[in-house]
Design a protein around this nucleic acid. Structure first.
Lengths: 160, 160
DNA sequence: TTTTATGCAAAACTTTTGCAGCTGA
DNA sequence: TCAGCTGCAAAAGTTTTGCATAAAA
């Protein structure tokens, strides 16, 4: 995953601000902090991690949740699952999107990109008159390591 | 969504049982009840709804969760998000899979099927030596109704 | 008989909310 | 100014766990 360049980050930041304004939402310090934190980190994040980082800037947990749902509403982030318990958030429409293969045994996540899938989702959105904002594709299966383990020792699958 | 025929259901039930046995897991009444309930309902379900239905058969909430995670591990169900708060579960590898377009404004869900996507996911899994068990594709965007509303009255987006 | 599963109730988490005070436009 | 944000703390909701008992093999 490549970090965004400074220029691009600022451009994106401005775009989010204007998105918020369009929705009649105030641009507050708290919201700026959340957006900046999102832009500074990886493309997908635990809410928990965001809360921890933002707490040091005086942003409360409640505000993190409130801001995320606001940003989801305007189409800047999207909730994703990635086979785990707690929710993650991911940027939308930021280019450089990738999808995931997830092992249902050990949780291993393999990233991949597919231009064909990008193309297909555009077609599908268009066909249903949706304004495309992003997508989540998780392919679930059993990874090569777990398949091998499975054969060797049928019962100790946990510690793959 | 078409309900499964009786014969197909029984066949599937037998398959799950043997899957469980393969994993050295006991076939208990509770587990049978959960699997049957899953096979009798829609392809994706709220955990909450499952708990309610199974409670009347004497199955506890804890067992529903335990059984679901077991079934997830053997590859019979998969956790999905569908843009909502609480988790849903979905059958895997049961054929007749469909994906979803989700409106980030109003939560509207539109189902669609794409044989091209089915084909692509198979290729991708194969390429990474994963044993394919299923996939989740959610395309997120703004539905035609919300787009219209957006233009008409910029600020009352909630009650789309 | 022995091992594994279950129900119960409590604990651990995650997310939302009401409200009083604060802040951005 | 003042509608809209925010933090706090409490509530609500979801998922997991320990343990005594029950059920499967």
């Amino acid at each position: 995953m490549i970090a965004m360049g400074r220029g691009k980050k600022e451009e994106k930041f401005a775009k989010v601000c204007s998105l918020l304004r369009e929705h009649g939402v105030r641009i507050t310090n708290v919201r700026k902090a959340v957006v900046k934190e999102l832009l500074n980190g990886k493309q997908h994040r635990h809410v928990e991690e965001l809360c921890r980082k933002l707490a040091s800037k005086g942003v409360s947990r409640a505000s993190v949740y409130r801001t995320l749902s606001l940003l989801e509403h305007v189409g800047f982030v999207s909730k994703v699952l990635y086979g785990e318990r707690h929710s993650h958030f991911e940027f939308l429409s930021i280019g450089e999107h990738h999808d995931h293969l997830i092992c249902i045994r050990c949780g291993r996540i393999v990233e991949f990109k597919s231009s064909q899938i990008e193309r297909l989702q555009k077609e599908i959105a268009k066909k249903h008159s949706f304004e495309l904002k992003g997508h989540v594709l998780e392919i679930r299966g059993i990874c090569p390591q777990c398949k091998r383990l499975n054969k060797e020792q049928e019962k100790t699958v946990k510690d793959c």
